[in-house]
């Protein structure tokens, strides 16, 4: 990867101090997952979503934008006007979505680079694939809509937060859509399913306990269009058996339906505000 000389990069070869602090073993961490009353560290049940805050119209320069908070996870997504697809010679019948998923350099415990790393590139692709089935691409042939998702703070489930937020931003930008897309992250660790994991829980789901090869672990991100009952993207990593996956599918589709109600309310509020304003004039 070429180094970007126009930007001030952080010092090379630095590591987080966390590596030198006393660390717990996997088993100990697992015990800390739940408190004594079977609730998680932040007081939620295992299948309870965090509280969510959504606002439209955050970036005045963009055609549409939205801000979403999911516990401590904070995301801004801006959507820009359709423009001609750059560097393209032939005419395409369908429009194109261009998605960019980026962690702010300070958003994670470890400092991120300015340039997209492979995780961010992968998330960009998933973001694009989650939104594509919902957008009426034939309405803007040969044009491209740019979607930029910036994670300001990453406290787990940032990809699903970005998908939901991007959907609100697209609606705010008046891009024609068939349905609203809402996404939910599920974490699986030690054969337990956790909805909407925090960063700590997510990291536990990603690592693997060497002593026990049987237990499942992994992350599942489901993007769902609830009116049409269609899953627009299903992304899973780790090592999970079919039973847990089918369980997660039904749980996350139900949860997506609940989030959709919230989003609808937010969009209706935005429309009403606009209508009131034009009435006053």
């Amino acid at each position: 990867m070429p180094v970007d000389l126009k930007r001030i990069n952080g010092p090379e070869n630095t590591v987080s101090y966390k590596l030198y602090t006393p660390s717990k073993t996997f088993k100990e961490e697992l015990k800390c997952l739940f408190k004594s009353n079977n609730k998680r560290q932040d007081g939620r049940n295992s299948l309870e979503h965090r509280k969510m805050f959504i606002k439209t119209g955050i970036v005045s320069q963009a055609k549409g934008s939205a801000y979403l908070e999911l516990g401590n996870t904070k995301v801004i997504v801006s959507v820009f006007d359709p423009r001609e697809i750059p560097n393209k010679t032939d005419y395409s019948q369908k429009g194109v979505l261009y998605c960019e998923f980026k962690y702010a350099t300070f958003s994670c415990p470890q400092r991120r680079n300015f340039q997209q790393d492979s995780e961010e590139k992968q998330n960009s692709i998933i973001l694009k694939q989650s939104l594509e089935p919902a957008v009426c691409l034939h309405e803007f042939p040969n044009f491209q809509v740019d979607i930029y998702a910036l994670i300001l703070e990453n406290d787990g489930s940032s990809l699903s937060a970005a998908v939901t937020c991007a959907c609100v931003a697209l609606a705010h930008a008046s891009v024609p859509m068939y349905d609203l897309v809402t996404a939910v992250t599920m974490g699986v660790v030690d054969n337990q399913i956790l909805m909407d994991p925090t960063l700590k829980e997510q990291q536990l789901c990603e690592v693997f306990d060497e002593t026990d090869t049987k237990s499942d672990h992994g992350i599942i991100v489901t993007s769902f269009m609830s009116t049409h009952q269609q899953i627009s993207q299903f992304y899973q990593t780790g090592n999970i058996n079919l039973e847990n996956i089918s369980k997660s599918i039904s749980i996350s589709t139900d949860a997506s339906g609940d989030i959709k109600l919230l989003i609808e309310k937010c969009i209706v509020n935005h429309v009403l505000k606009g209508a009131n304003k034009s009435n006053e004039e």
């Binding site: 998933i126 694939q129 594509e132 089935p133 919902a134 499942d216 599942i220 269009m225 049409h228 009952q229 269609q230 899953i231 627009s232 993207q233 299903f234 992304y235 899973q236 990593t237 780790g238 090592n239 999970i240 058996n241 079919l242 996956i245 089918s246 599918i249 039904s250 589709t253």
Partner: peptide, 23 residues
């Protein structure tokens, strides 16, 4: 016998039952 990655491709969407069947 476990799934290590699942990814939807091809730009379409699937009903949850269809997804489960294809899995």
């Amino acid at each position: 016998s476990n799934f290590s990655t699942i990814l939807q491709t091809g730009g379409g969407s699937l009903h949850p039952m269809t997804l489960l069947e294809s899995l």
